[in-house]
């Protein structure tokens, strides 16, 4: 893994000098800022059980299905289209190192964007100046829990984006593939829960499994401060699997 650090620094540097990075960051922050504003506005008008931070993270899937494909669709597809991936593979750097560098660069950027949104509650406190120190705006527990969920689930979502990018030379196709996979994974499972499972007895046992795999369920647990190791294991193991598949996809296309 001696080339990994070098490649990662290079990838992060390329992100830092790219105008597209800043455009994506601005759009993301505008969208999430608007979401946070709407959450606070709603909280002010209608009584809510959950603090604003917990509600804010409920919409995590919107930036995931849009921003993750945008961040990852170029990573390998464009390099393959231009042939620069092939040039990279003629060096002693391994395919795994290249995939990991691309993946972690995208992941760090993704987390960096989310980290910036942690400033929203601070800005809200600064401007709204709540007199009560127990105000829901000060609820750091649900905020850190939600952020932790984003960090852990992001491992898998970004890996899926990188996998989609490794399967095609066309960045647009990679983006659409990534969007579809994330949509099915996050929303599809939720829709399955609304199917009449109980009506079909042989499918009844699948209900708890689908429920367990629900990202919204994990988010709820994290926001309430429930730190279960099972989601960690679920996301981490699937991330390793997806990154392994990405490496194999690159090697299979490069050497055949």
């Amino acid at each position: 893994m001696r080339h990994f650090h070098l490649l990662l620094v290079h990838e992060l540097r390329m992100l830092a000098v790219s105008a597209a990075t800043y455009s994506a960051a601005v759009l993301f922050l505008l969208m999430m800022g608007l979401m946070y504003f709407l959450v606070i506005y709603q909280y002010d008008n209608v009584f809510q059980n959950d603090p604003p931070s917990a509600q804010y993270f409920q919409v995590f899937w919107i930036p995931v299905v849009f921003v993750v494909p945008l961040l990852t669709m170029k990573s390998l597809a464009e390099e393959r289209r231009h042939g620069t991936l092939e040039a990279m593979l003629t060096t002693p750097a391994s395919t795994l190192e290249i995939v990991l560098a691309k993946y972690f660069a995208a992941y760090f950027f993704y987390i960096g964007l989310w980290a910036l949104t942690l400033l929203f509650p601070w800005i809200a406190v600064l401007f709204l100046n709540p007199a009560n120190p127990d105000s829901p705006l000060h609820d750091t527990a649900s905020l850190s829990g939600g952020f932790m969920f984003v960090c852990i689930s992001g491992l898998l979502y970004v890996a899926l984006g990188v996998l989609a990018s490794s399967l095609t030379r066309n960045t647009l196709v990679a983006g659409m593939l990534s969007f579809s996979m994330l949509f099915v994974l996050i929303i599809g499972g939720n829709l399955l829960l609304h199917l009449p499972w109980q009506d079909a007895p042989f499918l009844a046992n699948f209900h708890p499994v689908v429920e367990y795999l629900q990202p919204f369920q994990h988010l709820q647990d994290f926001s309430r401060g429930v730190m279960d190791t099972r989601p960690f294991f679920l996301y981490a193991s699937n991330t390793i699997l997806v990154l392994g598949m990405t490496t194999m996809a690159i090697e299979a296309r490069a050497t055949n």
Binding site: M14, V17, S18, H82, G83, T84, E86, A87, T90
Partner: peptide, 9 residues
């Protein structure tokens, strides 16, 4: 390689 692929940026 043929066509000499290089990163433009």
């Amino acid at each position: 390689p043929e066509h000499n692929p290089l990163p433009d940026d």
